[in-house]
Design a protein around this nucleic acid. Structure first.
Length: 265
DNA sequence: CTCGGAATTA
DNA sequence: TAATTCCGAG
């Protein structure tokens, strides 16, 4: 009706809507897809945050910021999930650090155990049908990846289930009250560079605004980041080849090593 | 604590 | 590819 779009096209080869925004490859992997074997750490964290689990982890004061209140417990939980009995915070944090370059996470300097999600990436990943085409998607796309549980029957070798990410609407960390929407960091960034060719503008930009979503999400790669990678892969004329980021981004930013700021303790 | 390199694993 | 493991350096 709304779109008449035969969504039965193909799982991985028909991200029309995705096409409009261009995410990196890794972003598409719904956690349990064939490509990615198991739950990814950030999925796990989001899950815990959404469930408001005990006191192992909780949201911070800023948008997307979270604090690991009990590192050891969190590590234990993560270890259980992954079947790694010897997991500890040291290792877990290493994994977290790998997210820096991938731009999934960010460290809140000066605050112990405090990190911050870079939602400008994740939002689009988890809410693909959200703000994109006003009428392209029916009305399902409001949920997370298969977080349900390891009942994981959802594996389904992913060959047949293109958009099965809609399972159960868990608590949406993104819409939480304590996540104060920032007053538009750099709005101009939204339209700085027009896509190369036939690239549609952020269709849901305004929509997102209404929904208090991270504004930069739609069209900005650099929402809060001071300076991207030392050698920004593709940001010249061809717009964003985020794909390049995902795999190409390596040890880039390394100029910011000014921590060691024990605040308390 | 936090940061990443390096080797290894699934 | 996404960690896991080990570890020296700051």
């Amino acid at each position: 009706m709304q779109c008449g779009c035969t969504s039965s096209v193909s799982p991985l080869s028909s991200p029309y809507w995705s096409r409009t925004v261009l995410f990196p490859d890794w972003a598409y992997k719904p956690a349990w897809s064939p490509g990615s074997r198991q739950v990814q750490l950030w999925h796990f964290l989001l899950e815990l945050l959404g469930r408001g689990s005990g006191g192992a982890i909780g949201w911070g004061s800023e948008w997307g910021e979270f604090v690991i209140q009990d590192p050891e417990t969190l590590a234990r939980l993560w270890g259980e999930r992954k079947g790694k009995p010897h997991m500890n915070y040291d290792k877990l944090s290493r994994a977290l650090r790998y997210y820096y370059n991938k731009r999934i996470l960010h460290k809140t300097k000066g605050k112990r155990f405090t990190y911050k999600f870079n939602f400008s990436k994740l939002i689009l990943v988890n809410y693909p049908g959200f703000p994109t085409c006003h009428q392209l998607l029916p009305r399902v796309p409001l949920s997370f990846p298969p977080f349900s549980s390891e009942t994981g029957s959802l594996l389904s070798r992913g060959a047949e289930l293109p958009l099965d990410r809609a399972l159960q609407p868990m608590a949406h960390p993104f819409f939480h009250p304590y996540c104060l929407p920032k007053p538009i960091p750099s709005a101009r960034a939204l339209q700085v560079h027009a896509p190369p060719h036939s690239a549609p503008p952020p269709p849901g930009a305004h929509l997102m605004r209404d929904l208090r979503l991270p504004l930069g999400a739609t069209a900005t790669v650099h929402d809060d980041f001071p300076s991207p990678a030392g050698g920004c892969p593709a940001k010249s004329t061809s717009g964003w080849d985020l794909r390049s980021f995902a795999s190409g981004v390596k040890e880039s930013e390394t100029g910011n090593k000014c921590l060691g700021r024990r605040v308390d303790k």
